[in-house]
Design a protein around this nucleic acid. Structure first.
Length: 302
DNA sequence: AGAAGTTCTCGGGCGC
DNA sequence: TGCGCCCGAGAACTTC
């Protein structure tokens, strides 16, 4: 599925396509997509008559901000949105349709049926799952080296796994984690707590660089991802390590390796991203009271 | 057959 | 021993 750059691209596209439109009715043909409220009929009823004011994003979640309600949508692996005329034929794997008063409709398609939608009263969405426990927003001012280190540096898990955990930093998925680690020259299986200050700084910078470049390019398109207007993102051409198994490393020419880390296919270069077993553990300088959770929300409230 | 861009849940291990 | 945190494995589903 889309990671942050793809979701951001979809958000921008949907801003152009559906902001200002009023929902006349909603049709749900695959109930499992709707997580909140429990009752599908209630979901359909609660949305009818509402106007879309703005498109927001929190991590990989889209927010349809309406007058009084907010629809939180996650595309998971293969969810896609498209704007259609009501007369257009319904394509396969279309699970939710938002019928607008102007005769157009926004359709949600999802081959693997993993996507989710939650409906909340406006402003209440951040108080509940799935948005309540999300970590730092990497394109927000709150994503400084200091806040990044505060959530990552003490983790004993592999750095790739830590970066994929949305409770620490949001928006990174399998592609961009591999890309950022490659650019930073860090082996994906390095325990996060063994990274030097210098490595963490480099990693923080490369996460920003990779995500910003990808957003500017409109995201990547590995398989089924297409933005709201049906165009392919261009960043795929800029991927340096992801999907390049056995190809020569763009830096050193050594064949790119692929393994499994945290259950995910993982690409890396053994030369450019060495796994140091030396573990010259740097002393964790003054760690604050470990138990009192400093509540890192980095929320984009408003 | 196995893997595919994600996340949730469950259970075991570890430290306090 | 008990509790909480943390981590790894498996599951959710369809397609190629």
């Amino acid at each position: 599925m889309p990671e942050l750059p793809e979701v951001e691209t979809v958000r921008r596209t949907l801003s152009e396509l559906v902001v200002g439109k009023t929902i006349q009715s909603v049709t749900v043909s695959l109930p499992r997509i709707i997580q909140q409220p429990d009752d599908i009929k209630q979901f359909e009823l609660d949305l009818a008559g509402h106007r879309i004011l703005e498109m927001g994003r929190r991590g990989k979640f889209l927010r349809f901000i309406m007058d009084g309600v907010v629809l939180v949508s996650h595309l998971r692996m293969e969810g896609r949105y498209g704007l259609y005329q009501s007369s257009d034929p319904i394509e396969k794997h279309t699970h939710v349709i938002f019928h607008f008063t102007d005769g157009t409709e926004l359709r949600y398609k999802d081959v693997r049926q993993f996507g989710t939608m939650h409906l909340f009263a406006a402003g209440d969405e951040f108080n509940h799952k799935p948005l309540s426990k999300l970590g730092l927003e990497p394109l927000d001012d709150s994503f400084t080296y200091e806040t990044f280190r505060s959530v990552i540096a003490k983790r004993t898990t592999k750095i790739k796994v830590a970066l994929l955990n949305q409770e620490y930093v949001v928006g990174l998925g399998n592609i961009y984690v591999d890309e950022a680690l490659f650019r930073a020259g860090i082996h994906p299986e390095t325990p996060a707590c063994e990274l030097s200050d210098e490595q963490l700084r480099k990693l923080h910078a490369m996460i920003l660089e990779t995500l910003n470049e990808a957003v500017d390019a409109g995201g990547s398109s590995i398989k089924s991802y297409v933005n709201g207007q049906g165009e392919m993102g261009m960043f795929q051409q800029s991927l340096r390590i992801y999907g390049r198994k056995d190809e020569p490393c763009v830096v050193c020419g050594h064949p790119v390796e692929k393994t499994v880390v945290g259950g995910r296919g993982t690409h890396f270069c053994t030369i450019c991203q060495p796994l140091k077993r030396t573990s010259v553990n740097k002393v964790k300088s003054k760690r604050h009271t470990a138990s009192s959770n400093p509540k890192v929300d980095g929320g984009v409230e408003r």
